[in-house]
């Protein structure tokens, strides 16, 4: 007997969210990730290249080397990411504002954000230092400084969503809503943001990323469950596109950083960390990430090839 492919079609789809002021869109699919035999995925998942504003120190040589000539200048870094690594988006991380670190002012960080937004043509994501209180202040200043540029601000969390949501609403920006690996908490934060007046069509969910070996399976399953709820149960509060913080989390893993001299059994350190990032990104794309934030140029190149081959 001939086999008939059992397809699963649905009337529901992920919301299409516009990023920046051009024609870059994310989401819009009515299928599980890359299941093009079931339906359509009108927009490719996007690679957001991570740029930090605090001249990061102590990253392992494998990732410091390709970034050496740009790491101290977020504008140069962002331009190189766009022009040479083909960034779909820039993900600017304002780590310099961290009260436990340099504790730079919101105004200074907002100027950096403005310079980056003006220097590149691709849409920009701006993350704070992930300090609940300071982020509110910083992202509000960023929203003001980049008014009308439709920057994706985040992450808004339970304890600061009002400030960040209001800033995004007031200055025509979009917002990333971050919750700790839980479908219901993700839905709840989206409800709270929309009660505030934030357009549900301008929200991206960050369900929290666990890197390979550090909770990847939790992020993987929560993303799958969010997509299934969105598509099969038509749950409007799960129909936002998803973002995964891949580069940051992957390069924190001991296995990505450790020198081969200490752990010879883990193999070539110049490739191991890159591959740690590739696997984390590939898995989360298969689970449902619409945007992956990434760091290493070789990992970015490979993951782009993965997306190209799947579309």
């Amino acid at each position: 007997m001939a086999f008939e492919m059992p397809t699963e079609t649905t009337e529901s789809k992920i919301r299409e969210v516009s990023l920046g002021t051009g024609d870059v869109k994310v989401g819009g699919e009515n299928v599980l990730p890359f299941y093009l035999f079931d339906g359509q995925m009108p927009n490719r998942p996007l690679i957001a290249v991570e740029v930090c504003d605090d001249n990061p120190q102590g990253w392992p040589p494998a990732v410091m080397e390709p970034l050496a000539d740009v790491i101290s200048d977020p504008v140069v870094w962002a331009k190189k990411a766009q022009d040479e690594w083909g960034a779909d988006l820039i993900a600017l991380r304002l780590k310099s504002t961290d009260p436990k670190g340099d504790d730079k002012s919101a105004e200074e960080a907002a100027q950096t954000a403005k310079s980056v937004v003006e220097a590149v043509d691709v849409p920009v994501i701006v993350y704070g230092a992930e300090d609940v209180e300071k982020d509110g202040e910083v992202l509000k200043a960023v929203a003001t400084a980049t008014e009308g540029k439709n920057v994706l601000l985040g992450p808004a969390v339970e304890d600061n969503f009002k400030t960040i949501g209001a800033a995004s609403l007031g200055y025509k920006q979009s917002v990333v809503a971050k919750t700790p690996i839980d479908v219901n908490l993700a839905k709840q934060l989206n409800v709270l943001l929309s009660n505030l007046g934030v357009d549900v069509g301008s929200i991206i969910i960050d369900p929290t990323t666990g890197a390979l070996g550090y909770g990847l399976e939790y992020s993987y399953s929560v993303m799958e469950r969010l997509k299934i709820a969105a598509l099969q149960q038509d749950d409007g509060m799960t129909q936002m596109p998803l973002i995964a913080d891949v580069g940051w989390e992957s390069w924190k893993a001991k296995e990505a950083k450790a020198p081969a001299s200490e752990f010879p059994e883990w193999g070539d350190e110049s490739r191991r960390g890159v591959f740690w990032e590739i696997i984390t990104a590939s898995c989360l794309l298969m689970a449902g990430a619409n945007i992956v934030m990434m760091r290493h140029p070789d990992a970015i190149k490979t993951v782009r090839k993965v997306i190209d081959s799947l579309m």
Binding site: Y220, G267, D268, R271, F275, I278, I279, S282, C283
Partner: peptide, 27 residues
């Protein structure tokens, strides 16, 4: 390696790669 990673997640019970190098196999 990325293909191997995808097939692990998507239902392949055996995945054949070209290299035993630890940088690929351990992750």
């Amino acid at each position: 390696g990325a293909l191997a990673g995808i097939y692990v997640a998507k239902y392949s019970d055996i995945v054949v790669t070209s290299t035993p190098d630890a940088w690929m196999q351990y992750p």
